[in-house]
Every structure is written in structure tokens, then in C-alpha cells.
Design a protein around this nucleic acid. Sequence first.
DNA 1: CTATATAGGACGGATCCTGTCCGCATTGTC
DNA 2: GACAATGCGGACAGGATCCGTCCTATATAG
Lengths: 299, 299
Amino acid sequence: MPDPTLRLLSLLSLLQTARSWPGGELAERLDVTRRTVRRDVERLRHLGYEVDAAQGPTGGYRLAAGRTLPPLLFQDDEALAIAIGLRVAAKLALADLDDASVRALAKVQQVLPPRLRHRVRSLSAATSIWLSGQGPPVDADVLTTVGLAAAHHERVRLAYSGRDGHVQHRHVEPVQLVAASRRWYLVAFDLDRDDWRTFRVDRINSPTPTGARAVHREAPGGNLRDYLEKARAQMAPTYRADVSLHLPVRQARTLLTDVMADSTLTAEGEERCRWLSHSDTLDWLTLSILRLGCEFDVH
Amino acid sequence: MPDPTLRLLSLLSLLQTARSWPGGELAERLDVTRRTVRRDVERLRHLGYEVDAAQGPTGGYRLAAGRTLPPLLFQDDEALAIAIGLRVAAKLALADLDDASVRALAKVQQVLPPRLRHRVRSLSAATSIWLSGQGPPVDADVLTTVGLAAAHHERVRLAYSGRDGHVQHRHVEPVQLVAASRRWYLVAFDLDRDDWRTFRVDRINSPTPTGARAVHREAPGGNLRDYLEKARAQMAPTYRADVSLHLPVRQARTLLTDVMADSTLTAEGEERCRWLSHSDTLDWLTLSILRLGCEFDVH
DNA sequence: CTATATAGGACGGATCCTGTCCGCATTGTC
DNA sequence: GACAATGCGGACAGGATCCGTCCTATATAG
């Protein structure tokens, strides 16, 4: 192990196995002296990674939470678990995490050794069963493909199914993925229409990056944030709910944190509260309420 | 940026953003010459990480899938997404991933900066709603605590609820987490009983590592694998199902990959198949079948 | 008290790293 | 077809770094 960089990475990897390592054992594994191990630990600390050390016969080094997130080194099966977990997280489309899960998934999948790729596929298929009925089915591969294209500034050809089931072929420049009310949307510049469009990701099929670089464009309406807000409003919910929940308002608030965005909750006495919400699918609304597992009156 | 190790990590981080970086830009960011960047890329390749390079004016470097999984560097929100995804994955208790998700989760949580910890908590609470009814509720914190203790070889005190709801306090040395038929089990040495025991994790409450190191013991029955097999058999399913599914056998097999373990599937003509399965909860069985969304006859 | 841990200073020789040259190959654009 | 921007890699030299080998101090479990 002649390269100090490789040795530091190995050291990080060892420390991440969540057990305590005596310096002597580390020295043996890394094929250096104990003094060098101490120096390496010092370097890790200097890089912002907190290494706890315990003295005495039962002592040793272990990695702790520091200011900075250290580079994470995973085994094959752990990486697999992460990929699967992220696909599930992406499907849930939690508004708070927005596209972070897609970015992380793209990061992992980009470097996933080929031998693990097919296992992700099959495991992912297995999990998808348990998530059916949890909102519209979004293909994680489609998500990462268009998400990566947006990051790469690459053009993409895709098939888009309209409401009537008619399939159109589009040539677009993806810019941003947005999750809103448990749906994924893609903001992109439509080269055929020569204007900005927002696509529902669950209606996108077989997106293929063309390899051509996207032209840098002025954000739609001058400001991407504003445009996204407008787009979200346009993807407006079609159904509204106005129900009285037989729950104390505080309890309801905790239970509904996930769907609270754009909905209001007001107290109706001690034991009840009123919930004004909306969604674009009826299923979703009823599911949200049923999951609370309490009595309710519909207004 | 005087330290070559830190620079190499930064380079990895940049390359992981899934876009193409020209050498000049990297040189500027890392505050070195282009020649040094080339040398660093060479070093990364030598470490087993595949770096694609494209020549010409639109060229640049980007990270690709190699033989080895590189150290992954995440942003705060990406790490958050991973933690949440893994908690969900752990809850689903996929047999194929077994304890890989728990190990990965422990790895991430161990080094998660404090500022992110509470966000994991609240987001996790939000997601748990959508997973209710997906098997018995397992607290991800309990999982990682006992999982870490097993890895650390640390003793743990815990409260264990028996079938009758009676709570017992135990002092154990955790050895191994096992997922079987969508339940988590902990194999541990019970210090009070002075013998090996298998605990259902969903019945464990408030586990606290004592800090005391676990004594190295001979595996129960001389072989941990065998013991686990026996334990799984003991945790035997109480309910059996014998149904005819109105589905071609091949389609059923794909849909049931996740629950196939310990169940048999045989063809009954072209359009039907017969499924013999078992589970320890009735809910689970019915849910499994209902999720298929096909007609079925119960024998 | 003793054994075993971490912590860290001092020193010297070997090694490595980096910038600056250089010529070369490849590719997209004008 | 010329040009410019990109990647590739050899050679060299001065300076920085690294690492093993001493050393002592300090904390902790048994």
C-alpha cells in the first residue's frame, strides 16, 4: 500500500464498519507502523471527519458524526440496498426531499458496477408490488434518465402519452425535475413546439438521450423558481376535500405532515378538526383520509 | 488545496455530479495545473475507478461504472434521501437484502452531521404513514441500535413485550439481525437466561447499549448459519394458504418474487396456477394475494 | 500497580509531488 | 481544410512530504 491516498480511503472504509479498531490492528491491515496510523487519523480529523478515540486496553478508533459528511464506502449489497431504497423514496415523491433522491440515485447508479445492475432491476421489480396503489406508477429509470439529462444538459427524445392515450414523440431539453403533490414533473424546452413545457413523468416513455448538448437558454419567464410555482399551480388539483376529522388538531397535524402542503387544518373543538385539502386524483384523497384511521364527516 | 488526498476527494466529488468536466475547469476549481489534473485522473483510474474521457472541444471527464464502487460523496439533502430510503427499505424487510439495508443505514447514520439528524426523524415519521399496513411496524432506530451493537460487540439492555403484553427487561449480547418472511429477528445471547435467544425486533423497546464489550462466544450449536435456519423454522408460520390464482404461472412468478421464499407455485393449465404459501399473520397473506389484483379461489 | 491504549515531538533519509516544458492524437466548428 | 479546444503522456528539477524509528506523557481496564 504505497499510496497514502488509497491508504486513507481504506482507513475510512475500515472505520465505517461501525466497530472500534485498535491502532495496532489498523497498522497491520494497512501495512504501516502505528505512528503512521496516528498521523493518518490526524489527517482525517484535519479533513473535517470526526474520529473518536478511546484510550486504555479496550480503546481504539471509530468514526463519529462530524461537521462534514465523509466519503461513504459501501459493500456491494449495501450499495444495492441504497439503490433500492432510493427508488422507493423516489416513488413516494416526498415533497421535502424533492429531487434529492433522484440526484442521489443517479449518483449511485452512475458508478454501480455492471454485476449489480441486473440485481437492482429484479429487486426493484419485486418491491414495486408493495408500492402499488401509492400514487401513479413512476419508473425510476425514467426519472434518473431525464434527471441525468437535465444535469448533463443533454437533449432527450421521448414518447409522451396524452390524456386520451395518444402517444406523441417529443424532442426536448430537460431542465429540472419537480415533485409536487406526489407527482413528478419535468420542466423542459420542447424543441418541436419551440417553447417551454411541463411534462408529467409518469406519462413519459422510453426517454433516450441523444448525446447532443442542450443550448443554454434563458429561464422561462426569466426566473425558473417563479415558472415552477406557476407550473405547479397549473398542474392544479382537480378534486377538493372538506372533511371533519374526529381527531385533536395537534394529532392530525403530526399525522398529516406529509400531505399538509397546500392544505389547511383548523381546530373544531377539543376532539375534532376541519381539513381543507385538494389533490388531482380522487384515490389519493380518500387514501389519505382512510390512512388516518379515524372517524370523519365529509362536507 | 495543498493536500493531494483532499484534492482527489474533491475531484471525485466533482466527477460524481454526473456531468462532464473539462480538464481546464477542474484545474481551476482544484487550484492546480491541467497537468496535475491529468495525473490525478490517472491516479483515480489506477485505484480502480473508471473515468471516461472525451476528446475534442466538447470533451471532458466523467465518472463511469468501474470494477470497484468508488467512495460516494453526497450533499446534505442527498444523504437525507438515502437515510429515508434505507429506513423504508428496512421496513419492507426484503429477504434478499437481509441486513444489508440495516448495515448501510447504520453506516450513514453513524456519520450523519447533527444538523441532519432531526430532519431524518421528522421525515421518517411522515413516511411511516404511507407504509402502515405493510407488515408489523418496526422502528428503524431500534433496528440500527441493535444492529450496531451486534457489529460493535456491545451489550444491550432492552424491554421485550411478550405475547400477553407483559414487558420483560433483558440484558443481551446481540450477534445477528435476520429478516425472515417480512419480520426482523435478533439473535442474541441472553445474559439473564444464560442461553441463546431469538427476539422479534418489533417487540423490542428502548434498547440501550451499555458500553460493555460482549464476550466472544462459541456460536450457538457450533454454527451460526444452522442455528439461524432452525430459528427461522421455529418462528414458523401459523397460517397456510392454498389458492388458485387466475394468472399464467410465469406472470405470477414475477409478481411474487418477493414472497416466493418457502412457497411453491405450480401451473394449472395456461391461465391459472396454484400457490401454496404460509405466513405468521393472516393479514399478510390476504394482502399478498389482494395485491396481485387478479381473481382467485381459496381451497 | 501493570499492561495496553492513544497522543505527539524530533530527526533524517527516501520518496513523491508539482509546475513547466515538450510533441502528439482526436474531435467539433467555422 | 484549417483551427481551436480537448486529452495523453514523457522528461526534468526543486521543493515538499512522507514514513520509520526513536522518545515521553497520559488515560483506562483489570
